[in-house]
């Protein structure tokens, strides 16, 4: 697996799926909430990312539902997707911890 940093959108999508299967619009609203409204995925971008994640076997379709005559396909993480997200989260946390610690030491500005 490449060691390149994961794109933010990818990270957020995997995070949205971390506690259970979700459908497309559910992922969009969840990602918006998690990021405090900063990351707004568009449908085209989302489905390109889902397609890529699926071909990399990080997610799989879970089930389909029809609500108000509209198709909802739910996706969930595979074990490989869970591992990758956990690794990436740990990596980001380590980096963030260093950044916060240094800011504290240097200026005492960060809380």
């Amino acid at each position: 697996m490449a060691t390149r940093a994961m794109q933010e959108a990818t990270f957020m999508i995997l995070t949205a799926l971390a506690d259970g299967a979700q459908h497309g619009y559910g992922i969009i609203t969840d990602v918006r909430d998690i990021s405090g409204g900063r990351v707004r995925l568009r449908a085209g971008t989302l489905y390109m990312a889902l397609d890529r994640l699926r071909s990399d076997e990080l997610i799989v379709p879970d089930r389909e539902e029809v609500v108000d005559g509209r198709l909802r396909r739910y996706y969930r993480l595979t074990p490989a997707g869970t591992t990758l997200l956990a690794d990436e989260a740990a990596r980001l946390q380590a980096h963030a911890a260093v950044a916060l610690r240094r800011l504290n030491v240097a200026g005492g500005m960060a809380t």
Binding site: H23, Y25, I28, A43, Y47, D51, R70, L71, R73
Partner: peptide, 17 residues
Amino acid sequence: EFRDEHGPEILAVLMAG
């Protein structure tokens, strides 16, 4: 082939938003 597979769900996402 992509539209056949994902068209309806993408449309659902667009309409929901």
